[in-house]
């Protein structure tokens, strides 16, 4: 039950993109096509969950143990960068087809602030490992849901005649705002 609440809250109520504003760059950058958005969402889900588990372990058994938690930011960003590289190498060897599908998105994920944001917020909130893993996965799914919905909207938008000054990002941002307004309707569920 507790986990169910975490999942619903992370996907709908506190959606990472539309309520917490993490991972906006890829949200605006690669949401032009539905297929790329889906690929990116898959890669992000995988990396966020893995990175949160690894950084949680490093925080608990290295940083907190030796009392050097002020190094958190530096340690986490290096771990995430290394992890993304490793995932890329392993995937290339083990599953070339999946690598083909996700390949180009992986290097971009290092600079996705959602990864560092989730990793930092679970240790700041003192979540136990199980809860942190579920929270990370659910948050990542929430990111994917918003991303795929938004890409669908933008594909429809691309064919429409939009005033010149609104073309491209401005109209995308306003669309995202209306979507966030819709997600605001979930406020209160699960609390």
């Amino acid at each position: 039950m507790e986990y169910l609440l975490i999942i619903i809250s992370a996907i709908f109520v506190n959606n990472i993109l539309l309520a917490q504003f993490l991972g906006i760059c890829p949200f605006l950058g690669v949401s032009n096509k539905l297929s790329t958005a889906t690929g990116m969402s898959g890669a992000v889900c995988f990396v966020i969950t893995l990175a949160t588990v690894v950084t949680w372990l490093i925080d608990k058994y290295l940083l907190v143990h030796f009392g050097i938690t002020y190094l958190r930011t530096i340690a986490f960003i290096l771990v995430i960068a290394a992890l993304v590289q490793m995932v890329e190498i392993v995937l290339k060897k083990v599953s070339p087809s999946l690598y083909q599908a996700l390949g180009i998105f992986l290097p971009l994920i290092t600079t996705n602030c959602a990864v560092l944001g989730v990793a930092l917020s679970v240790v700041q909130k003192d979540m136990p490992l199980g809860q942190a893993t579920v929270y990370a996965l659910a948050t990542a799914i929430g990111w994917g849901v918003a991303m795929i919905l938004f890409a669908g909207l933008r594909e429809q938008l691309a064919g429409n005649d939009v005033p010149k000054a609104f073309k491209g990002l401005p109209i995308a941002l306003i669309t995202a705002g209306i979507m966030a307004l819709a997600f605001l309707g979930f406020t209160g569920i699960g609390n």
Binding site: L18, F21, L173, G177, I178, A180, F183, L184
Partner: peptide, 8 residues
Amino acid sequence: VLAPGAFI
């Protein structure tokens, strides 16, 4: 002040 306003 809430999230949607930021985008709009």
